[in-house]
Every structure is written in structure tokens, then in C-alpha cells.
């Protein structure tokens, strides 16, 4: 295995949870809901997926449990912000703190156990392609799902009727409501989709990335996922590219260090956030661009008048 191939394999593992968590958040934000609880939902998914895998012996049941756990946990956010119209920013932050705490309780009996690593699914023929084969077609199911989700969300948002409704709600929930679109119901579903994706990202952490459970193991990846959504200016393709770019930056800085090339590692660790700030400046520079891409109702509460 060549060095480049080895590096790319590590990049894929590092980028997958970012892509997964952020594609879910992208859909949530497209409906105008800002859920800052990604980190909390992710770490819940990681704890539940690991615990269930240990109980049942099947990582696939663990993955499903992680997805369900993330989705159910996000429902708490949905109830507070959509039904009770609580402040989304505060509720999202609270969700993160709560998730970190509860996941620690769930995971406590499993600390220090070595988990079962999710085995790759080798796709016949395609995996024999030199170089690309082992990279793209000898991966675990979560990687395939992450790519499929980006493709699916892109089609769904921009080619389907339901996607049009979602974008309409995100841009102007008042008008969408007037047109008879169920704003709250759609937002609930989008929030749960975001939670499910974050839960799956968490499952990737505790079953593929590092098959073990330790408290707070998401270690800030949820925040990077949030930054990634803005970086991608709410576009699935850019999000995929951005996720792999963020992954590549963090891995290549480690390789650079090991090879004795000295770029300040603190700077490189901060690079995803710096890149996001730069993108924010760029897209807000052009007013038209901002209007096209940003969901105009992002973070605004919606109370239908009866």
C-alpha cells in the first residue's frame, strides 16, 4: 500500500462523520431551523451505538440504534423549539450539554472495553480497480451511506417537490404557511433527519473510527460539522468537498509533523474554522449570493396565527 493511498484512507475515515453530521444539519437548516446540538446528538449516537453493539454483538443493530437514538434525542429539541417556541440557539447549546452528560451515563459500563470494528463490505469487481478500488469500494457501510445521503439530499432538495417545499419554508415560513404547507410538521421531520444523521455519525466514531467508548469522544466534531454547513453555503456538493477538505487538512498536518515538516500545528488545527470565516466573509460580500443560498428564516421562530 502506497503512502498516498494510506493517507487517503485515513482522510476518508476522518471526513465521513463530518459529512454525515453536516448533511443532516444542512437539511434541518434548509427548513429554517438552527440546531446547535449536533455535538450532543452525535455523542449520544456514539454511546448508544456502542452500548447496543456490545449487548447484541451486532454492529449493524448498533448502527440502527445510534440512528434512532440521535433522532429521538433531536425530538426533544424539536418539541422545545417548534412546539414551545423556545430560543433555538439556547436550546441547541443545552442539547449539546445534556447529550454529553447523558451519553456519559449510558456509556459508563462500557468504558475501557475494546469494541467490535465494523467490517468493510468489499464490492466485487469494482474493488479490483487499481488505487481507487481499495479506497472507494472496500469500505464499511457507513461510508457508502454517507455518499448516498449527499447524492440523495442533493436530488431531494433541488429536484423533488418536497424539497421545494422545504426550501420554501426555510426562505419564508409565513408564505409557505399561507400556501398550506405544514411548516411545523416539516420542520419536525427535518430536525429528526438531522438527529438521525448525527446519530449515524456518532456510530461511525464508536464503531469504525475508534472502536471504543470514551466520554466526550466526539471531541468537537459536531461544531466542525456546523461550520461545514456554512462553509458549504447550504449546498450538498460543496459540503461533500468541504468535508473531505477539512479531513485532508487535519490528516496532512499530522503527516507533515511526522515527516519533520514544521508548520505550526495549532494554526492547522484552527484551519477549518478560519476557512469558514473566510467563506462567510466572501458570501456576505455579495448580497445576491447571500440571498440565494442562505435560508432567510434560519433561526427564526414560527408561530402560526390561527
Amino acid at each position: 500500500m502506497g503512502m498516498i493511498e494510506a493517507i487517503l484512507l485515513t482522510v476518508i475515515t476522518a471526513a465521513t462523520p463530518l459529512v454525515l453530521a453536516s448533511i443532516g444539519e444542512l437539511v434541518t437548516e434548509r427548513t429554517g431551523v438552527l440546531n446547535l446540538g449536533v455535538e450532543g446528538m452525535m455523542v449520544m449516537g456514539a454511546a448508544i451505538a456502542f452500548a447496543v453493539t456490545q449487548m447484541t454483538g451486532s454492529p449493524y443493530i448498533g448502527i440502527l440504534a445510534g440512528i434512532a437514538g440521535g433522532a429521538l434525542f433531536s425530538l426533544l429539541f424539536g418539541f422545545l423549539t417548534l412546539t414551545l417556541v423556545a430560543n433555538q440557539v439556547a436550546t441547541g447549546l443545552a442539547l449539546t450539554i445534556l447529550g454529553l452528560g447523558i451519553s456519559g451515563q449510558i456509556g459508563e459500563p462500557y468504558v475501557g472495553m475494546s469494541g467490535t470494528k465494523l467490517q468493510p463490505i468489499v464490492i466485487p469487481l469494482l474493488s479490483d480497480i487499481p488505487f481507487l478500488g481499495p479506497l472507494l469500494f472496500k469500505q464499511d457501510i457507513i461510508f457508502y451511506v454517507s455518499i448516498a445521503l449527499v447524492l440523495g439530499v442533493n436530488w431531494f432538495l433541488f429536484k423533488s417537490r418536497a424539497g421545494l417545499k422545504i426550501r420554501a419554508i426555510g426562505d419564508n415560513h409565513g408564505s409557505a404557511h399561507a400556501l398550506g404547507i405544514h411548516v411545523i410538521r416539516t420542520r419536525y421531520l427535518a430536525v429528526m433527519f438531522g438527529g438521525a444523521c448525527a446519530g449515524l455519525a456518532g456510530a461511525q466514531l464508536s464503531l469504525v473510527y475508534t472502536p471504543q467508548w470514551v466520554e466526550n469522544m466526539s471531541a468537537g466534531r459536531g461544531w466542525i460539522a456546523l461550520a461545514l454547513v456554512v462553509f458549504a453555503s447550504w449546498r450538498p456538493w460543496r459540503l461533500l468537498a468541504g468535508g473531505y477538505l477539512f479531513g485532508a487538512v487535519s490528516i496532512s498536518q499530522l503527516h507533515a509533523q511526522a515527516a519533520g515538516i514544521h508548520i505550526p500545528s495549532q494554526f492547522l488545527s484552527a484551519l477549518p474554522y478560519i476557512a469558514t470565516v473566510v467563506v462567510l466573509i466572501l458570501i456576505s460580500h455579495n448580497r445576491r449570493m447571500t440571498q440565494i443560498n442562505t435560508p432567510a428564516c434560519l433561526g427564526k421562530p414560527f408561530v402560526p396565527d390561527r
Binding site: M3, T10, L205, M217, L254, H255
Partner: peptide
């Protein structure tokens, strides 16, 4: 490799992989 963290299983694993690959 300076990981700039005490605690990040993912990053620690990545650092380990990078070192072994090298």
C-alpha cells in the same frame, strides 16, 4: 506528532496511523 489535545480519540488514532504509515 503534537496532537494539541489531551483527549480526542479520533485525532489520536489518526496520529497513530500517520506515524505507522511513515
Amino acid at each position: 506528532i503534537w496532537a494539541n489535545t489531551w483527549f480526542d480519540p479520533g485525532k489520536e488514532a489518526d496520529a497513530a496511523k500517520a506515524l505507522i504509515d511513515q
